[in-house]
Simulated assay, not measured.
Amino acid sequence: MTHPITVQTMVAAPIEHVWKVYTSPEDIRQWNAASEDWHTTAADVDLRVGGTFSSRMEAKDGSMGFDFAGTYTAIKQHALIEYTFGDRAARVEFVPVGDAVQVTVSFDPDGEYSIEQQQQGWQAILDSFARYAEKTRNGR
């Protein structure tokens, strides 16, 4: 078994806002992309243990797309989200640090892409999340 891959960011915003932006379908559609030429066209979240989530990620030129979906296995409001997707699992931790929140995502790697590619892709999405959360922290 391979070790999980971990990505991390600091978000200069209150924990309540960081949590909301991470878990709200309306917000997810705004930040959930690894690069400018991709976007999330749909997102659904049933934030409870046993609840499911899904997001549709597509290239803006329409050339390709995929669904990212899974089931929540643990939820601790403002602290932890764990979920499974396919035969893999992920853990998202939210830790307040002063006036910011450290968000750490650990996930099981797939067998298709290199560890570096997966880490870069997930980090890019997390960086996009942090930028959006900071930009919207004082309301819309």
Results as ranks from 00 to 15, higher is better:
D27C: 03
G62D: 09
T73V: 13
T40R: 06
T52R: 14
F66N: 05
G62I: 09
V45F: 05
V45L: 02
V49D: 11
S63A: 04
I28D: 02
A42P: 01
T73K: 12
D67P: 01
A59D: 00
S54T: 09
I75Q: 08
R56P: 12
R48G: 07
E36M: 07
G50M: 10
A34Q: 04
S55L: 14
A33L: 11
Q30T: 06
K60Q: 00
G50E: 02
G65L: 07
V49K: 15
H39V: 10
F66V: 05
L47E: 12
D67E: 15
H39S: 13
Y72P: 02
E36Q: 12
W31F: 13
R48H: 02
D46S: 12
A34P: 09
W38K: 01
A34I: 08
A69P: 00
S35G: 04
T41K: 13
F53D: 07
S54E: 15
S55N: 15
S35F: 12
T71R: 02
A33K: 13
G51V: 12
S63Y: 00
R56T: 11
R29N: 00
W38G: 05
D46A: 02
D46C: 03
A34Y: 09
D37F: 02
T41Y: 06
E36W: 03
Y72Q: 09
R48V: 08
F53Y: 15
T52K: 04
K76C: 09
S54F: 11
T41P: 08
T40A: 10
S54Y: 11
G62V: 06
E26H: 04
I28A: 02
W31E: 13
D67W: 15
L47C: 11
E26Q: 14
A33W: 09
Q77I: 05
T52N: 10
A69N: 03
E58P: 08
A43W: 01
W31A: 05
T41N: 10
